[in-house]
């Protein structure tokens, strides 16, 4: 018998490519059954609340220009199509028609995101509530996770902590993330023992410190909700004016793992178009291809998006946390390398 500890310093041995014959799933029967129960419970949850299940295209003529998210390009005749990175634009077109509350369970695709907590193709739950504010949606997210937790694996009550982006930095690092400048952040990172290859700008430091020094200490068995993000991390959220201006956005963490991201949805077509253009300019600066902007989506905003809040949740990670698994490989039948 091989003692695996003997191989500790010899990663190349343990991580050697799987032989050709290993056609079977990495995920166990138990994980696959838990997945089916989780999906069932989510659909039941929305059925009871009259939220309509919808399906939107996976392949679109437009793509997100978000500089941090890269779409897969699929050749199709003379014009390329893009695999969606989230069903957000199409679902908002449905919302603008007055269809009401909707949800979708769908695979989404993000290029180059591979790791223990990342698979370039993953399962997403996204839903929108018309006329709701963020606080109400946060309560529903927690409620839905609790119900899914019961379905996957009878759990005790799940503890919830809610704190602002600023409080989370103050608790962990004793700095105000809205006030600190690039030098302050660099000094904090070095003080925390992070060895970082520069160049890093201010928002890079915030992203790194948040995931490496703030989120890592969130309690493992609880959900932590972070709200009031800096305005430059708003993405598609509305911005509350003030000093500093804050994004009406929240994120839900299961232990240190990012699980869901919600917005009070930006409805201003002009501002949305400006944010898309700004992202495309950042892409050009970084020598990344600019993305065709979704004109249908902008037209829908122009026609009028009802006041609403929406949230997207990674279902593979949710299952991983609820079932007590330690990597996506344990809950996805065939991950990227073996798909």
């Amino acid at each position: 018998m091989i003692d695996k500890n003997q191989y500790e310093d010899r990663n190349e041995v343990l991580y050697a490519p799987a032989p050709q014959t290993s056609w079977e799933p990495d995920a166990s029967f138990e994980a696959l059954r838990q997945r089916a129960r989780m999906l069932d419970s989510i659909r039941a949850y929305f059925r009871e609340r009259d939220v309509l299940e919808v399906e939107t295209p996976l392949l679109s003529q437009a793509a997100t220009p978000d500089v941090y998210i890269d779409s897969f390009v699929v050749g199709s005749g003379s014009r390329s199509r893009y695999l969606h990175t989230s069903p957000e634009f199409a679902m908002k077109r449905l919302l603008a028609t007055g269809l009401g509350d909707i949800y979708q369970i769908v695979h989404v695709f993000r290029k180059d995101e591979v790791g223990r907590l990342h698979n370039p193709e993953f399962s997403m739950l996204e839903w929108y509530r018309v006329g709701w504010n963020l606080a109400r949606l946060i309560d529903e997210v927690v409620d839905l996770i609790t119900q899914a937790g019961d379905a996957v694996f009878k759990r005790k009550k799940i503890a919830i902590f809610q704190l602002s982006y600023r409080q989370s930095f103050e608790n962990a690092l004793r700095i105000d993330p809205h006030e600190a400048n690039t030098d302050d952040l660099r000094k904090i990172a070095i003080g925390q023992g992070l060895e970082v290859a520069e160049p890093m700008n201010r928002s890079d430091w915030l992203d790194l410190l948040f995931s490496e020094c703030v989120a890592v200490d969130f309690p493992r068995d609880a959900l932590t909700v972070i709200y009031d993000y800096p305005a430059d991390q708003a993405a598609l959220a509305r911005i509350k004016p003030g000093i500093p201006p804050l994004a009406e956005r929240f994120e839900v963490f299961a232990g240190p793992i990012e699980l869901a991201n919600g917005f009070h949805e930006l409805a201003d077509a002009g501002e949305q178009a400006a944010r898309f253009a700004a992202e495309n300019r950042r892409r050009a600066k970084q020598n990344k291809p600019e993305m065709p902007v979704d004109q249908h989506f902008l037209s829908a905003l122009q026609a009028g998006l009802p006041d609403c809040s929406g949230v997207a949740m990674g279902l593979d990670r949710l299952l991983m946390w609820l079932g007590g698994w330690s990597s996506l490989q344990e809950v996805i039948p065939f991950t990227w390398d073996r798909a």
Binding site: D66, E195, M200, D204, D207, E212
Partner: peptide, 29 residues
């Protein structure tokens, strides 16, 4: 691979100095 959903991605690596054998952590954008 470390990445917030709406932010900069990082590669957090352990590297071994081939001269000294010492292993250190390093983070790259």
């Amino acid at each position: 691979f470390v990445k917030p959903g709406k932010g900069q991605a990082f590669n957090r690596v352990k590297v071994r100095n081939l001269k000294t054998g010492r292993v250190i952590d390093k983070t790259f954008k």
